[in-house]
Nucleic acid binder design. Structure first.
Lengths: 256, 256
DNA sequence: GTGCGCGTTCGGCATCGCCGAACGCTTGGG
DNA sequence: CCCAAGCGTTCGGCGATGCCGAACGCGCAC
């Protein structure tokens, strides 16, 4: 019978106390819940903070479950694999929508373009692969935000940066948009990042159902939206279907 | 500067090593990754197993991220609150669908009926609130399975129990069904639990977007399905809308 | 049958975890 | 304005607990 490592048990108990609460938990409250000295509890919880399993609220000094613990439950997709699985489907998407197509992942509080297909015309275009974009102002970013708690946490509590007069800078409004994304299964951003440009995006899932990336198109508002500036549903359907097809490459809904 | 609790740091490192792998990790491999003696690593990982943060594969003896860690990221909804928020919407659902309506949560590997509205006719019906049902053979269960990794893990690796000749007992087939649930945003089970009975269900989300419950209807196949035994899309739409309405009661998509 | 690698157990030692006491800061009340 | 209370944080010393090497039992392959 192996002996139990007492301090690890205590650290686990701390995490369980914090998980029950939304608001930051104070050190005194934590110590009382564990029946330990404050100094002991402090050493344990500071260690948990340093390994990223606990975050400390700057204002109150209280503690809450950390982003690093969320990371344990999140799978990072291999970018090379993502590219190779998405390649044919995004080519087809660009061809059928006649717009530029992208595949993106969430990385360090931003959208990272993992793959980019040029708009199929003779216009001058710049390679986007490897570039980063703001989460809140892009359709790809909204998809990632809708399904990844790490992304939402990375937004912080303050106002969101404005890129155009149409950028959603009110956090509550954005959260409402994210709920729409979950209800509809796709996202749009119209002139929120660049004037006269719009984007439509949909989730890419892995075999467990977790959203690991977003796929989307981007182009002029006139092409992506109807006369009332609303995304064209035929294009949204196309993007969603592409998302599902790429998801199937990762085993989602496919017999192993 | 508070000292770091070394064994807690080591335990965290163990979790990080395990999180990267799908397959069970052996003790020797773990010890090598940490640069510790096997016996030391064993004490740490056994402690993590005892607190539920690590599971041990019965066959290989290897270790993997445990269900208890998944629990840290999952919110339990208060059943009384769920009932009171769902009350009016499920009454309306039962009235409009003319079928019995249920709200259910995932608990200990099963579907737990949190709230039940009788089918609005004079038939003899039994109270279902508080009863449990199998995850894999019910529409409510499929919704919970589609969005909660704890539920999928609780299924285990063996064959699924058969209730009728139509029960999906092949795990791969079920995983494919779950992918459909995520793609469509609703689930159905036709004669999988009881002969001549069918169910349609949809997710209920909390304000962060996490699926915390499922709402659904249940009734005779003839009433819920068309001539080809496929769920009626008008009823599915009704159920999905009810799910969204209850979700809004929990703050999903609503300005706080 | 033997060797190897697996996860597990055991006992002893020294190091590290834990504690009480104190610190510095903020807030609220008199 | 001052004091008290409560907050999270730091410090040093002691003893309890974490860690280690060695060994165990099991299963598998040659």
């Amino acid at each position: 019978m192996a002996s139990r490592v007492q301090s690890v048990e205590r650290a686990a108990a701390i995490l369980q106390v914090l998980a029950v609460e939304d608001a930051p938990t104070g050190l005194g409250e934590l110590a009382a819940a564990l029946g330990l000295a404050k100094a002991t509890t402090h050493g344990l919880v500071q260690t948990l903070r340093d390994v990223g399993f606990v975050d400390q609220d700057a204002e109150s000094g209280g503690y809450l479950i950390g982003a690093g613990l969320l990371e344990l439950g999140s799978r990072s997709v291999d970018l090379n694999e993502l590219r190779s699985q998405a390649l044919n489907w995004t080519d087809a998407l660009a061809a059928r929508s006649r717009q530029a197509a992208h595949v993106a992942v969430y990385t360090s509080g931003e959208v990272l373009i993992a793959h980019h297909v040029f708009r199929p015309d003779s216009s001058v275009q710049q390679v986007q692969t490897g570039t980063t974009h703001p989460l809140h102002a892009t359709a790809l970013g909204k998809v990632l935000l809708a399904y990844d708690p790490r992304a939402v946490r990375a937004l912080g509590a303050g106002p969101l940066e404005s890129f155009t007069y149409r950028t959603v800078t009110d956090r509550s409004r954005l959260l409402r948009d994210l709920a729409d994304v979950r209800d509809l299964g796709w996202a749009a951003a119209v002139e929120e990042h660049h004037p006269e440009q719009a984007g439509i995006a949909a989730p890419v899932r892995d075999r467990t159902g977790q959203v690991i990336a977003a796929v989307g198109i981007k182009g002029p508002v006139d092409a992506l939206c109807d006369a009332r500036h609303r995304p064209r549903t035929a294009l949204a359907t196309l993007v969603v279907q592409t998302g599902r097809s790429i998801s199937r490459e990762f085993g989602h809904g496919r017999v192993p």
